Structure formats: structure tokens, C-alpha cells
Amino acid sequence: MSQSIDYGNLMHKAMRGLIQQVLEKVGQEGLPGNHHFFITFDTMHPDVEIADWLSDRYPDEMTVVMQHWFDNLEVTDDGFSVTLNFGDSPEPLYIPYDAIRTFVDPSVEFGLRFETQDDEEEDDAEEAPMQEMVEDDPDDEPPRKDAEVVSLDRFRK
């Protein structure tokens, strides 16, 4: 048995389960009201399936929008597939939950951001001085980095 509880991985699993539940409901009932999603994912994830021209155009990450038109939404325990329109060219996509970097519903100011291993290493390097300061003052807690809400400003026009 391990010596600690891995809250970061447990939280990521729970957040991905939330995305799965939301997409399952949308698949059954459609998008209610003004809800819509900005989903940013790692295009280089080994299980992502997108057209070659999309992976060439977006070699690292891609943000897709599920709003006015989408088709063939199928949700599984590992990810989801959907057909989206790219300039009057419908393209099927498969996105595993593990590839998702952000999931945002700006209509209700809700967002999830998943840290990557590279992000965590950069954060650890940047937070080293902060950790020392926190240890000197026991009343302050170190900032949590496993899950955070994404700023919606980057998605607004």
C-alpha cells in the first residue's frame, strides 16, 4: 500500500467522469439553452483520431467548439467521438478523456483545466521559493495545482 493518497489523480478521474456525464446527457437530450463547450485537447495523444490535415494544422493542441452543429456524438468510458464542421467540411473526431487539456462551458462560466506532466514540472520549479515561504508561516497553505478553473478570457472575442 502506498504511503499517501494521490488526490491529483483521483481529482482528474472525477473531473473526466463529470465530462463523460455531461456529454452523455448532451448525446441523449441535446445542448440545453445557451450551453456550449470549448474543448482543448492534445492532438499528439496516441489515441486521438483526427484527419491528417487537422493534425498537420494543429500539431500540439486543438480547441473545438460544440455549439450550433455537431453530429454522431458517441460517448464511451474512455472518450467520445463526434463529427464537427470545419469550414463546411464535416470531420469525425475521437477524443479520449486523457487527451483533454481544458473543458469550458462559457455560458455558465464553468471550466476545467488538466495539468500535464510538463506543466507540473514547470510549476514545481516556479513554486520552490514559495514552498520555503509557506513552511516558515504555518498558517498559509501552499497553492493547489491539481485542478483549477480556466480563465474564460482566452475564449472570448
Rank of each mutant, 00 (worst) to 15 (best):
S2L: 10
S2W: 04
Q3S: 11
S4R: 00
S4Y: 03
D6G: 10
D6W: 04
Y7R: 11
G8E: 15
N9L: 08
L10E: 15
H12L: 05
G17W: 03
G17P: 03
I19M: 14
Q21A: 15
Q21R: 14
V22W: 02
V22L: 02
K25Q: 06
K25S: 11
K25H: 12
V26I: 04
V26A: 01
G27S: 13
G27W: 02
Q28R: 15
L31W: 02
P32W: 00
F37D: 04
F38G: 10
T43G: 15
T43F: 05
T43N: 09
T43A: 08
H45T: 14
P46I: 00
P46Q: 02
A51H: 11
D56W: 00
D56P: 02
R57Q: 14
Y58F: 14
P59M: 12
D60N: 06
M62S: 04
M62E: 07
M62H: 07
T63P: 10
T63W: 04
T63K: 06
V64A: 12
V64G: 11
V65I: 05
V65D: 09
V65G: 00
H68V: 06
H68A: 08
W69Q: 12
F70A: 09
D71S: 15
D71H: 15
N72E: 14
N72D: 15
L73T: 05
E74C: 02
E74T: 15
V75E: 05
T76Q: 09
T76C: 03
F80V: 07
S81A: 11
V82M: 07
V82Y: 09
T83G: 11
L84K: 02
N85V: 09
F86W: 09
G87K: 13
P90M: 09
P92W: 02
I95W: 02
P96N: 05
D98A: 14
D98R: 09
A99P: 11
R101M: 08
R101I: 10
T102P: 00
F103W: 13
F103I: 12
D105H: 09
P106A: 03
V108Y: 04
F110Y: 14
G111Y: 01
G111D: 01
R113L: 08
E115Q: 13
T116A: 03
T116S: 15
D118Y: 00
D119S: 04
D119V: 03
E120L: 10
E121I: 05
E122R: 14
D123I: 08
D124R: 11
E126K: 02
E126L: 08
E126Y: 00
E127N: 09
E132N: 06
E132K: 11
E132F: 01
E132S: 03
M133Q: 14
V134S: 04
D136W: 01
D139V: 12
E141Y: 13
P143D: 07
R144W: 03
R144Y: 05
R144E: 15
E148H: 08
V149W: 01
V149P: 04
V150T: 12
S151I: 01
L152C: 02
D153K: 04
R154D: 01
R154N: 00
R156W: 05
R156E: 08
K157E: 15
